[in-house]
Design a protein around this nucleic acid. Structure first.
Lengths: 336, 336
DNA sequence: CTGTTAGCGCATTCAA
DNA sequence: TTGAATGCGCTAACAG
C-alpha cells in the first residue's frame, strides 16, 4: 500500500488528476459515475487511469464512503462439503450488489469463532454467521454490536438479528414418515455433535414419529464418516431395521462398514442420510436422504443480508424446506 | 461504518480518548503497544474501550499504516476437497503473523479470476494465487503490478513472482515405477483438463516411464468422479492392465463403474489415484495413490508470502515431493 | 512519557 | 459542470 523498496510506487487519485489535468474530484466522479462530466474530461481521465494502471485504494474508499464493499461469511469448517455450494450462491448475490465476499473459517472452535466475527465486523459491511455451537449469550453480545449480521443454519429465538435456516425437523419427519410407511417400527439415529443446534432439531422430529409407530433410539456418534463407520456396531446391537443419520457423511461411513460386515442394504437394514451432499455421487452409493436447498439457502441468506444493509429488517426467521430423496438404501424392513 | 438509522453510532478513537481523558495518540499507543504508557493511563484507556465497546476501524488503520492486515487467497473451486486443508494451513500462518485470511473463489472462470485478483490486490497486503488455467500473458500483467503475490500449485517459468508447487512429475513417476515393478507394461491415463498445467506435468512423467517399459496411453477424461465413471469404457477397450488417473475423484468414479461391471480390482485391473484426498476415507475405497503434503503446501506458501511482505524474495520455485501410498487397488497385472 | 500536528487516499460537500 | 476545501478514523512524527 505504501511505497516500499522493490515495489512500484502507489499511484493515487491525484496522480491521475495531474496526468489528466483535472481535479481529483473529477476523477472520482468519472470513476464512480456520481455526476455528469464533460465527455472530453471523461476520456482524459480514462486514458490516464489506463496508462498509470490506477486502482482506487479500497481502504481510502471505505473510509470516505463509510462502506467496505465487502460482506463476510464465517463457517465452522471449509472442509465440510455442505458449504461450498452455499458460499457460491452468497458470493453471486454479493457480486450482483457490487460487493465481494470474504470467507473465514473458525475451525469449529467457539473461541476463535467469536474473535473472527469481531474481525469480520471490522472489515465488512455485514456478516453472515454460521455458528452451530456458539453459546447464546455470546451470540447476543455480538448481535448487540448492532452490526448488520444474519444468522445462518441456526435459529436463536429472541435474537434481534434475522436468521435463515433449514427445516431440519420437517426433513427428519419426512424421513421417519418414509420409514413408517415402509413398515419400519424401530430405528436407530446416529447422532451428531450433541451441542449442535441442528442435531437437536433432528431429534425433535422423533417425538412425532413415535405417534406414527416408529420408535427411534439415539446413539451417540458424531459428524464424520469415520464416526458413522464406528457407530454401526452399536446400531446393530439394538435390533433395529433402519438407521437414520446426522448427515450423509455418517451414512456413507456406516454403509462402508455394513458392506464389510456383509449386511445387505436395504434388504437387511435401511440406511438414510441427511443433507444430500454431492459426495454421495462420488461414492456412487445412491443413498436415500433428504436434501437441503443449498443454493437457495445461500441466495436467500445473501439477499437478507443485502436487505439488512439498506435497513430493511426481516424479523421472521426463514425456514427452508428439505426434500426427501428416496434412492437405493431404503426399503421394507427385513422379515424376521 | 457510518451512522445510519437503527444502528448504533460509530465509536471512534476520539470517543475513547475523551472518555479516558487522554489524547487519541495515547489510546492508539496503548492498543498497539507502540510505546510505553503510564500504567494509570493504560488502565483508563482499557476501561473506556471496554465500556464503549470500541473497535478500531480497520479501513482507517489500513489507510494510516499502509497495511491491510489481510492476505488474500484465490482458489478456482472451494468444492474441491484439495483446498480446505491448504487453506487451513495458510490461515494459521497468517494468524501467526497477525493477519487474517480472506478467500475468494473464481469458479474456474479465467475472466472472473483476473478480476478477483485485482480485487484482492486492492484490499490485501498480499495474495496467494491458485490459477491453473490463466493464460501466461495475464499472469505476467498481474505480476507486473508489483503487488506481493505468490503463485501456488503452478510454476510459470520466468515470472518474477515466487511460486510453490508440487512435484507432480515426480509423483506420477513414482506411480509408474510402482506399476512397472509390479510387472505392468501397458496402462491408461485418465487425463484431467487439457489446459491445466498440473495435468501437463503428470503427463510429462510418461516419457520416462516408457524407458522403464511402461507404455501409458492418454485418454481424455476430466477432473470429476463422473468423468472417471464415464471414461472406464474407453480404458477397458485399450487392453491395459492398469489405470492411472488425474486425481482421486476420477479414480473413485472409475472404481464405482468397475465394481458395477464386475471387474476385479486389483486382480483384473489396477487403479491408481492422485492427490490422496481424504474423501477416499469416506468412500473407504483404500485407493492406491500419491499424496500431496497439503498442510505443508499451505504452510510454506503462507510463509513465502509473509517473507515477500517483508521484502525477502524467494526466487527459486519450490517443489514439494509427493509420497506414494500403496493400498489395495494396485497389484500385479492379470495373467493373460 | 504525552499531547499536538499532519497526513494516509478518497468522496463529498460547497462555491464558482 | 468543475475545482477547492473538508473530513472519514487512525497512526506516526514531532515537540514538549
Amino acid at each position: 500500500m505504501q511505497n516500499r523498496p522493490g515495489r512500484s510506487p502507489r499511484i493515487t487519485i491525484s496522480d491521475v488528476s495531474t496526468a489528466a489535468k483535472v481535479s481529483a474530484a473529477t476523477v472520482s466522479r468519472v470513476l464512480n459515475g456520481t455526476a455528469k462530466v464533460d465527455p472530453q474530461l471523461v476520456e482524459r481521465v480514462h486514458d490516464a487511469v489506463r496508462e498509470l494502471g490506477y486502482r482506487p485504494n479500497a481502504a481510502a474508499q471505505g473510509l470516505a464512503r463509510g462502506e467496505w464493499g465487502t460482506i463476510g461469511v464465517l463457517v465452522p469448517d471449509l472442509a465440510n462439503p455442505y458449504f461450498p455450494e452455499v458460499l457460491k450462491a452468497v458470493s453471486a448475490v454479493a457480486r450482483a450488489h457490487g460487493r465481494r465476499m470474504m470467507v473465514m473459517e473458525s475451525d469449529e472452535d467457539p473461541a476463535l469463532e467469536y474473535e473472527l466475527v469481531e474481525d469480520l465486523m471490522r472489515c465488512c459491511d455485514g456478516v453472515l454467521l454460521c455458528s452451530p455451537r456458539m453459546p447464546r449469550a455470546e451470540l447476543v453480545e455480538l448481535v448487540e454490536r448492532k452490526h448488520p449480521m444474519v444468522l445462518f443454519n441456526r435459529v436463536v429465538p429472541g435474537l434481534t438479528a434475522p436468521s435463515i435456516s433449514v427445516d431440519f425437523v420437517g426433513g427428519m419427519t419426512q424421513v421417519c414418515g418414509h420409514l413408517a410407511q415402509l413398515g419400519h417400527r424401530r430405528a436407530a439415529y446416529l447422532s451428531g455433535p450433541s451441542a449442535s443446534w441442528a442435531n437437536g432439531e433432528r431429534i425433535r422430529a422423533f417425538e412425532a414419529a413415535r405417534a406414527f409407530g416408529l420408535e427411534v433410539t439415539v446413539i451417540e456418534c458424531g459428524a464424520t464418516s469415520q464416526a458413522g463407520y464406528d457407530a454401526v456396531a452399536a446400531a446393530l446391537e439394538s435390533s433395529v431395521t433402519a438407521v437414520l443419520t446426522y448427515n450423509d457423511l455418517v451414512a456413507l461411513g456406516a454403509l462402508s462398514r455394513l458392506r464389510e460386515l456383509g449386511v445387505g442394504v436395504p434388504e437387511q437394514l435401511s440406511v438414510i442420510g441427511f443433507d444430500d451432499i454431492s459426495l454421495d455421487r462420488v461414492a456412487h452409493s445412491n443413498l436415500t436422504t433428504v436434501s437441503v436447498p443449498r443454493d437457495e439457502l445461500g441466495r436467500r441468506a445473501g439477499e437478507i443480508l443485502e436487505r439488512l444493509l439498506v435497513n430493511e429488517y426481516d424479523a421472521e426467521p426463514l425456514y427452508l424446506a428439505m426434500t426427501l430423496q428416496v434412492r437405493d438404501t431404503s426399503g421394507p424392513p427385513a422379515v424376521r
